[in-house]
């Protein structure tokens, strides 16, 4: 199933303190309240811009570097971010995104401009830039991660299978 939404583009090395500051993550477990602060250090209006209609967060290299905080993908989900598209990801963020059900796509984001309308079909492996009329190739997820994402994340996978049922 394809998701269509607008691209919100940022730079390289976006760390987890920018995605959600440590000062918020220790205050509570309430993701809805925390989500309004998503990406606040870089863009104080991220939540207002993305949450009404949803959007793709587009970035450069090493997205999500830093802390292991799972609040990072959770507040992006909470702000209606449909997927993160980046040239590369920091590994803990990448795992956390898959585990919590936030799609992550490694692709050449130079082919996307802020505000472009994108269409992503993860199962078919197709990413289209509708504004520019182009198709952006991306490598498929390794089977383990594809299965976890398809199951709705790792917790759902465990609930369904009673443990690891991958490989």
């Amino acid at each position: 199933m394809a998701i269509t939404a607008k691209a919100f583009k940022y730079g390289d090395d976006i760390n987890t303190d920018y995605i959600i500051s440590g000062k918020y993550k220790f205050k509570s477990n309430d993701m809805a309240a925390m989500s309004v602060h998503a990406m606040e250090e870089l863009d104080p209006h991220y939540f207002e811009k993305v949450s009404p209609e949803g959007g793709f967060l587009v970035a450069g290299t090493n997205f999500g570097m830093g802390s292991s905080r799972e609040q990072a993908p959770l507040v992006l989900i909470g702000s209606n971010t449909k997927a993160v598209l980046a040239k590369s990801f920091a590994r803990i963020f990448y795992r956390n995104a898959i585990n919590t059900g936030l799609p992550v796509v490694e692709c050449d984001t130079d082919l996307i401009t802020d505000g472009d309308e994108l269409s992503l079909d993860l199962e078919a492996g197709v990413l289209r830039n509708l504004t520019q009329g182009t198709e952006i190739p991306f490598p498929p997820l390794p089977p383990v991660m594809a299965q976890l994402l398809a199951d709705g994340g790792l917790a759902a996978h465990f609930r369904e299978h009673g443990g690891f049922a991958v490989k």
């Binding site: 803990i92 795992r95 790792l154 443990g163």
Partner: peptide, 15 residues
């Protein structure tokens, strides 16, 4: 380092 859900899976299963 892993996230909380990975940590939970490891706490539950040892794997």
């Amino acid at each position: 380092g892993v996230g909380s859900t990975d940590g939970a899976a490891a706490m539950a299963s040892g794997k």
